[in-house]
Design a protein around this nucleic acid. Structure first.
Lengths: 131, 131
DNA sequence: ACTTAGCGTTTACACATGTAAACAATTAAT
DNA sequence: ATTAATTGTTTACATGTGTAAACGCTAAGT
């Protein structure tokens, strides 16, 4: 299988925009990112074009204007990012990763409980698989 | 404060070696990474040199041979990596990150319990802070 | 119809990164 | 002492990435 095209940090900002507002016009992307990122309109156009060339987004003409839409799911791409981060930094040791993050950052009651529920569920699943 | 020098993916492999075996000679680094990564000895020498230039490692002469040692702690660097990953991919939403990882990967009983303990502790800390 | 503003396309350019070859200095072998 | 092998240093080169300027086409205003 061919390696998935890479999304760079700068391109990632554009993708977040497009995923959240699908489809987006370049005007929308530029007016959202230009102030936030301090990028010129030209820079953003370049990023959009690179995403097109990489086959990560596509567009549909709406008169003179293009509507850009993603060709890949955010969830899918994040899954890949997760995997490679886990591999690169933790050599695949998930529990290391999780404890590390938990210990360094703070969480609300609610969030803690949400995670606890997930863990309970996983415990049960493990149990089931054992039988 | 000056931005921390970046460690690239290839350089990261070298750093893992040096952190695990501190100090390391280039011979040790090369014979470990050359087969594992399929890199030529020259390539690895380049990576070592870039790490030197970036001020991430330093060396001590031991006769003709250099012993390389890290100038930064693995833990510190990982903390930075964690932070930027959390920001980039999850916009800082830790609970999202954690649930995502937990749901996609598998964990042993033991690991689950370890994480549960961390959560309990955090819950108590939250409680304490509230008072 | 003619000019202009707006949107997309092409070209640019410096620095980073992966991947090494070529070179120099020094030690070890003959 | 010379030569060869080893280890570190310099230079190289293609591709990726951040950051745009310049250019070209077309709709819109006069």
């Amino acid at each position: 299988m061919k390696k998935a095209p890479n999304i760079t940090d700068a391109e990632w900002e554009v993708m977040k925009l497009i995923w959240n507002n699908n489809p987006s016009t370049s005007e929308q992307i530029i007016s959202a990112l230009s102030p936030k990122m301090g990028w010129s309109a030209q820079t953003i156009k370049t990023l959009i074009n690179r995403l097109l060339k990489k086959g990560i987004i596509d567009f549909e003409k709406e008169g003179r204007i293009y509507k850009y839409y993603p060709l890949i799911l955010k969830e899918d791409y994040i899954r890949t990012e997760n995997r490679s981060f886990l591999e690169k930094v933790y050599d695949g040791a998930l529990s290391m990763l999780v404890s590390n993050f938990l210990e360094e950052e703070s969480l609300s009651e609610n969030e803690i409980e949400k995670i606890q529920k997930i863990l309970e569920k996983k415990k049960n699943e493990n149990q089931d698989n054992k039988k």
